[in-house]
Amino acid sequence: MSLAGEERKDLIIDMLNYAGKVRTSELVEKLQVSSETIRRYLEELEQDKRLKRVYGGAIKVQFDREEPSHLMREVAFADEKKRIARTAANLVQDNEVVLIDDGTTTMHMLPYLLSRKNLCFITISVPALNLLMDYQNKGLFSGEVYFIGGKMQSKHFRSVGTLAEKMMQDFFVDKSFLSIDGIAAHYGISSYDAEKAMLAKRFIENAKETIVLTDHSKIGISTFYKIADLRETDVVVSDVASPKEWESELGAKGVNWIVAE
């Protein structure tokens, strides 16, 4: 296929990431090619598993309908997550109160924060809690650690639920670092789990600044439960640049998208 054809296919994916679905008619108008050409592009993109064709157009591929376990998430996109975590850690200053959400990306931040002075951590993540206590016991970290307790989700090694929400309402933090399951320009950030999403809403409400950590696999995805609109967040840190179709909306909503180095 010609370079122009590849560029058109990239544009289709950008549009798909923006809206979650595309229609053949709008692609014909946008790309100024025939409907037969559009159908061929969609067939080729489906063969590459980059979208799923449906009547009248295509939708974004979404392989999972439930949140993967913590152990599965640990090995998925591990290098990308470490880069995201290192970049996100650079946003933390001395003497701050920092909320670390559950998730493998947020937990990767902790080793990069040992040089900060007088930090206070709040978390719902059992692995993050264990790591922080280990750092304390080894004399690598001397700050404070608070665990938000509640209903335990063993599969994900985290606490959620009404008790956790009530406990969190009395904490105010400088920065909340959130892990998510999906991010879309129109829909916002989302989670597979309603209880986790409700608690994340509290994280956002009680933070001076909210930073979302996401790898490329979650971009353009809308999962079961909406956490917040993008305008309620301040920064997104990802391993890739934002889709071109999102740029004006991100600017209008005041979201700073940072590409991890």
Score class of each variant (00 low, 15 high):
residue 74 E to P: 00
residue 76 A to V: 14
residue 77 F to R: 07
residue 77 F to K: 07
residue 79 D to L: 10
residue 82 K to L: 09
residue 84 I to S: 02
residue 88 A to T: 03
residue 97 V to R: 14
residue 100 I to G: 05
residue 103 G to L: 14
residue 104 T to D: 03
residue 106 T to G: 03
residue 107 M to F: 09
residue 110 L to P: 02
residue 110 L to Y: 06
residue 117 K to A: 09
residue 119 L to G: 02
residue 121 F to Y: 15
residue 123 T to H: 06
residue 124 I to E: 05
residue 125 S to P: 02
residue 130 N to D: 12
residue 131 L to R: 12
residue 133 M to G: 00
residue 133 M to R: 11
residue 135 Y to F: 14
residue 135 Y to P: 01
residue 136 Q to I: 13
residue 137 N to C: 04
residue 138 K to E: 14
residue 139 G to I: 13
residue 143 G to Y: 06
residue 145 V to P: 00
residue 148 I to R: 03
residue 148 I to L: 15
residue 148 I to G: 01
residue 150 G to V: 11
residue 153 Q to C: 07
residue 154 S to C: 00
residue 156 H to N: 09
residue 156 H to L: 11
residue 159 S to W: 01
residue 161 G to M: 11
residue 165 E to P: 00
residue 165 E to C: 04
residue 170 D to G: 02
residue 172 F to T: 14
residue 174 D to S: 04
residue 176 S to Y: 04
residue 179 S to V: 08
residue 181 D to K: 08
residue 183 I to F: 02
residue 183 I to R: 01
residue 186 H to V: 04
residue 189 I to L: 07
residue 190 S to T: 15
residue 191 S to K: 12
residue 192 Y to Q: 05
residue 194 A to S: 11
residue 195 E to W: 10
residue 196 K to F: 13
residue 197 A to V: 08
residue 198 M to T: 07
residue 203 F to Q: 12
residue 203 F to C: 15
residue 203 F to P: 05
residue 207 A to F: 08
residue 207 A to M: 13
residue 207 A to K: 11
residue 208 K to P: 00
residue 211 I to W: 02
residue 211 I to N: 05
residue 211 I to T: 09
residue 213 L to R: 02
